[in-house]
């Protein structure tokens, strides 16, 4: 199966990568990580190096893309164009009270993707 993992720089990035890694290890999935543009921070090339390191420590091959523009639509478009089987993204954070809040990217992908979507909690 081909997995597309969408990440940006946030405190949830690690959890998303770990979910993808767990699946890839168990199922032998092929992983592509797409780094999307959001308001969250430092340049993609820095994050790219971190992602490479994360997967190479576990000897998993990964290809990395950088997507610019509207994160949700770029992800869905890439997933459809290249026939990915599943998209894995951050499933939202918790409010101070503990309510689940979907990110804008999660909302868009969930409503528009034609393949299976995994929201990481």
């Amino acid at each position: 199966m081909k997995l597309l993992v969408g990440i940006d720089r946030s405190d949830r990035t690690q959890a998303v990568l770990e979910t993808a890694l767990k699946r890839a290890t168990a199922m032998g999935d092929e992983i592509t990580v797409a780094i999307v543009e959001t308001d969250n921070g430092p340049p993609a090339d820095l994050l790219e190096a971190e992602v490479e390191e994360f997967f190479s420590e576990c000897s998993i091959d990964v290809s990395i893309r950088s997507l610019t523009g509207h994160a949700g639509s770029e992800l869905v478009e890439l997933a459809e164009r290249e026939d990915f089987d599943r998209v894995i993204i951050d499933g939202g954070r918790r409010s101070p009270l503990g309510k689940i809040q979907l990110t804008d990217v999660a909302e868009f992908v969930l409503l528009n993707a034609t393949m299976t979507v995994t929201l990481v909690r």
């Binding site: 918790r94 409010s95 009270l97 503990g98 309510k99 689940i100 809040q101």
Partner: peptide
Amino acid sequence: AFDPTDRAQGIPP
């Protein structure tokens, strides 16, 4: 005793 159908956005757990 809280009715699970009255939950919203994951709370109450």
